[in-house]
């Protein structure tokens, strides 16, 4: 099954059991979604449950909030995080805060989903990653989907949750293949151990998980050490428990992320580790992130602006050697 098909199936199955679930967004109905996530749903559920909206991101999220207040369970799709920026007022000032400001009297069972990240030469207004902005807002559950099985289970759970959830997808993952284990439920807030290992904990999320996995065989060969790869999955709340267990075993932490390094999400993971597990660490943590530049169009420059498997290998191997690995 493809990543986008897993997302589609999660929406389809929940819509089938709960008629309060509606979907809204640009090109999501008749057209089937710009990444084909809602394909086929319009024919099945009709225009009352799939609202094609005009290009009006602030209203897409704002309307979803109102729908949730009114008793529906909306799923709002935004084409990319770059356009979601137009809806950040609704997301941060309203979606994240109404529950708290009303002392719990208002609940917002809603999902806002969008892809982000560097695709292929879409230039800077279509290539950004802003998880760090959203994961720092109290009141939002933020999930980052890197895997097909997780896509299906996490989106399903997110739709059925009573708290507002941001589901971040990645532009380059929609056609990723994988298996879904329909029989085994997962907790979407729990980090996923992608690969076990005893020596280095590599924490990542979204597409960088794939890049890390591509890099790992070479890292292990060159350093003669075993890597444990963790996909964070939830960026808010963060599953520190799983991270701590791994770090107690390995004593070494690397974080790999695609967003800009300055203020990027990985700095949170490292600052937590240094504050909480300082004496467990055998080496200074390493952070591999995107450059602090707008993403350029030219392919060579674009690749120079973000981590790639080659760069991940080189950085970790150099760091490993400097730290006596």
């Amino acid at each position: 099954m493809l990543y986008r098909e897993a997302l589609n199936r999660a929406i389809d199955e929940t819509m089938a059991i709960d008629s309060n679930i509606v979907v809204l967004g640009e090109d999501i109905g008749r057209y089937g979604g710009s990444y084909r996530v809602t394909e086929g749903l319009f024919a099945k559920y009709g225009e009352k449950r799939l609202m094609d909206t005009p290009i009006a991101e602030m209203s897409i999220v704002g309307n979803a909030i109102g729908m949730a207040i009114g008793g529906l369970r909306p799923i709002a799709e935004l084409m990319t995080v770059n356009f979601a920026l137009l809806a950040f007022d609704q997301i941060i000032n309203h979606m994240a805060k109404l529950h708290y400001m009303s002392a719990g009297k208002i609940t917002l069972p809603m999902v806002v989903r969008f892809p982000q990240g560097v695709s292929k030469q879409l230039a800077s207004q279509h290539s950004e990653s802003y998880e760090q902005m959203l994961a720092s807002v109290p009141g939002l559950i933020v999930l980052a989907v890197s895997d097909v099985n997780y896509a299906y289970h996490a989106l399903k759970k997110a739709i059925l949750m009573d708290d507002p959830v941001i589901v971040i997808e990645h532009e380059l993952l929609y056609n990723k293949k994988g298996n879904v284990d329909f029989d085994r439920d997962i907790d979407p807030l729990k980090a996923r151990i992608v690969k076990e290992g005893d020596d280095i904990t590599i924490v990542s999320y979204l597409k960088m998980v794939d890049d890390v996995m591509e890099a790992v065989p070479q890292i292990e060969e060159k350093l003669g050490k075993q890597c444990e790869v963790i996909d964070l999955c939830a960026l808010n709340p963060i599953d520190y428990q799983t991270l701590a267990l791994s770090l107690k075993k390995t004593g070494r932490l690397v974080v790999v992320e695609e967003d800009h390094k300055k203020g990027g999400f990985g700095s949170q993971v490292i600052s937590w580790a240094v504050e909480e597990l300082f004496y467990t660490l055998d080496a200074s943590p390493l952070r591999i992130a995107g450059e602090d530049v707008p993403i350029p169009y030219n392919r060579k420059l674009e690749l120079a602006s973000i981590p790639t498997p080659d760069k991940i290998v080189a950085r970790i191997v150099t760091w490993g050697e400097q730290n006596g690995l």
């Binding site: 030469q121 879409l122 230039a123 207004q125 350029p296 169009y297 030219n298 420059l301």
Partner: peptide, 9 residues
């Protein structure tokens, strides 16, 4: 745009 913007910019 010296290759930094592409078709849209």
């Amino acid at each position: 745009s010296r290759g930094k913007g592409g078709s849209m910019h």
